[in-house]
Every structure is written in structure tokens, then in C-alpha cells.
Amino acid sequence: MSEKKQQVSRRQFLNYTLTGVGGFMAAGMLAPMVRFAIDPALQPQSKGDFKAVAQVDEITNEPQRFDWTIDQTDAWYESEVTKSAWVYKQEDGSILALSPVCKHLGCVVSWQGNSDYPEQFFCPCHDGRYYKSGENVEGTPPPVGLDIYEHKIEDGTLYLGKAKPREGA
């Protein structure tokens, strides 16, 4: 063993040590900064509490827009923001509350927003359309149907929670 030629030359040893120590120092410096920068991606998602939105007897078979406000905390900025839903009673009497956010690229849709397409939701940004059920019309830009709000009814009042994507979307 001792007669064998040295496996690591002096130059290599110095190279390894310097790279190692340098890398350790750089990592020690950068780790807190990177963790600091990616913090927003590691925050838990908001649960979305149920909010009172409408009285059940106001809801008809025709989609109507209901607005309500929520308190939003955006880092150091607190504000009230308005949310909306298109709400109606389906054939079987159950309530459907659709998110107005277009599934193409996020503009806002309205019921009968274009007189050429009565009985449909219309998005003005790229002429996206949805049937009354919120399903997307094939051949228009949106790839899937509108999100559906979780809802519950208590004492004749409709409460809406978080808008969820459809099954299979």
C-alpha cells in the first residue's frame, strides 16, 4: 500500500477542498434567501369559508348573478373583495351555483352575454360559450365547464363556499 503511487495529487486535493468549502459557504448564504423567495408557494391554500349569498326564495330557474364580499388578507394589505356566482334552480329543484370565471383564460362570463346565443353563458374575451349547465360548448375556446361553488342551505339562506373544478376536468 505505502509503495503505491499517491491516488490524489496535491493539486486535486486543494481543488476538492476549495470547491467543497466554497460550495458550503455559497449554499449557506443562498439557502435562506431561496427559502425566503419560494415561501408563497409553500403556504397552505385558503379553505374558503361559507358565506351567506342569497335567500333561497329569490332563486329562480333562470341564472341570476349574486354578489357578496369577503375579507381578504393579501400579505400586509387587508381589503374587502367582491365575489360573484351565477345561481339557479335546476329541473330537479336542486341549486347550482356557477363560478363566473372563464375556464379559457380567466375573463368573466355572463348569462346571455351575447344576444346571438340566448340560453348560454358568454365570455367576451375570445367568444367562449357555455350551456346553462355550465358545460363548455365544443368548438369555443374553453376546454372544460365552469367551476361549481360548494353550497349549503340553512333557514332559507344560500351559503356558498369555494368554487371547485368539475369532476374529470
Binding site: 435562506p32 434567501m33 425566503f36 415561501d39 409553500l42 400579505a75
Partner: peptide, 9 residues
């Protein structure tokens, strides 16, 4: 106070 490692950075 709220951001991870904010105090360090």
C-alpha cells in the same frame, strides 16, 4: 415576521 427566513435575509 411572516415570511420564512425573513429575519435572516
Amino acid at each position: 415576521t411572516e415570511v420564512a427566513h425573513g429575519q435572516i435575509v
